[in-house]
Amino acid sequence: MGRYVLRRTGAAIATLIAASIVIFAFIHLIPGDPVYVMLGDGATPEQVARLRNRLGLDEPLVFQYLIWAGSALQGDLGQSIFFETPVTQVIAEGAETSILLAVITMFWIVAFGVPVGILAAIRQGTWIDQGLSGLAMLLASVPTFWVGLYLILIFAAGLGWFPSSGFPSVFDDGGLYNLRYLILPSLALAAPNAALILRLTRASMLDVAREDYVRTARAKGIPPYRVVLRHILRNALLAVVSAFGFTFAALISEAVVTETVFALPGIGRTVVQSILRRDYPVIQGVILVIVCLYLIINLLVDLSYRFLDPRVELE
């Protein structure tokens, strides 16, 4: 077990290092002197000198990378040019919104995608299945921001049930009630991903239902619902769990757009605004943190998957 965890963690760290090199190279791939790229053309000579010194731009590239990676490891992702505050602080300010949005979205995905996928599989071939599978494919073909705009149009502008934009912290006035600001965004964000999980759940249920051991279970004379829950579903969910890493990545991608539609003060919108403002240290920092998170989640998914499936040799 320990060896497996170690090997898997090692692979994740290797990927992280490679990804960090890509992120570091990013600033050098932008045409122009990195310092002017970062500070803009209106920079004063002192500013230029200070940044040049801080980034170690006169050193060879390898050293520059080590300096950058070293300070990142110590929690220093540099300074935002626009806000003139540490990048870590900019990220921290968006973290609450983005994390809550991700958690609520994940809840919708699991709460709708899995049970409805099971229903479609159990009713395979009937009009229920065809309707649900068709709907799932339709939802997977819909841009999240378009769903978001319609949700705003109907439930915020039209019916007035939910606010249309922004998100005051749950630590401010209103407390947990402020979560209502995240209902529409999370629904928009969940739609295509729940559809994918639905399709995956259905497909792997049908795959497992053809297995010999399911026939053995039926032969025992146990009630059909128990065959489904204990034998088919349990094995089918293994495949679904392994897709959660992928779902998380899709979620982050689409959160960038969703946060923009709903004007949520999250990390995703920060990235877009930083791109428009050419605030490169923030872009670099956010992407590094997100890749890190993604790798950690994938690692956890992988490890838990190995726990759930006794066939996998852990030694």
């Binding site: 990927t15 490679a18 990013f26 791939l29 045409p31 960038v256 877009v272 997100i290």
Partner: peptide, 22 residues
């Protein structure tokens, strides 16, 4: 394939946005 893995560790839209910036 290792390099492909590394590219895949970037959420897809962020990868695209990064390239647009460059």
């Amino acid at each position: 394939m290792r390099m492909v893995d590394v590219l895949m560790s970037f959420p897809s839209l962020l990868l695209a946005l990064g390239l647009i910036v460059i």
